[in-house]
């Protein structure tokens, strides 16, 4: 099963959490070594986001993300896992699990 792992910030964490966060390079080596990583990258902050809609036949292009919050998405990874527990295990080893939050969204293939 494929999961999109959205990597988000979260102000609600302690300095001890930050100190306990593992190294991201180690995580990347582990997840690619295990053959579970499909693709992933950092994302530029919401200030670089552009939102696109078509309403009443008119293209509306606006500056900024979907919703203005004090938490935002800073990166993403696509994981290929046997099941949710495996994806949770991989997410739990990511440094941003300690200082941010990770959202696992299963793919919904069109033929599923």
């Amino acid at each position: 099963m494929k999961y999109l792992m959205l990597v988000g910030t979260d102000p609600a964490h302690s300095e001890a959490d930050a100190a306990a966060a593992p190294d991201i390079e180690e995580w990347f080596a582990y997840v690619t070594g295990a053959g579970k990583h499909v693709v992933g990258d950092r994302l530029r902050p919401p200030s670089a986001a552009t939102t696109v809609r078509v309403r009443g036949g008119e293209l509306l292009v606006t500056d900024g993300p979907f919703a203005e919050t004090n938490e935002w998405i800073v990166g993403f990874d696509v994981l290929d896992c046997a099941d949710l527990d495996e994806a949770i295990e991989i997410a739990s080893k990511h440094s941003m699990a300690y200082t941010g939050r990770l959202e696992l969204r299963p793919f919904w293939p069109l033929d599923g």
Binding site: C81, A82, D83, L84, D85, E86, L104, P106, W108
Partner: peptide, 14 residues
Amino acid sequence: EHAGIGFRVPESHR
């Protein structure tokens, strides 16, 4: 079904 919750006993450390 959709989130892929497996029918299994968790890993020993969990």
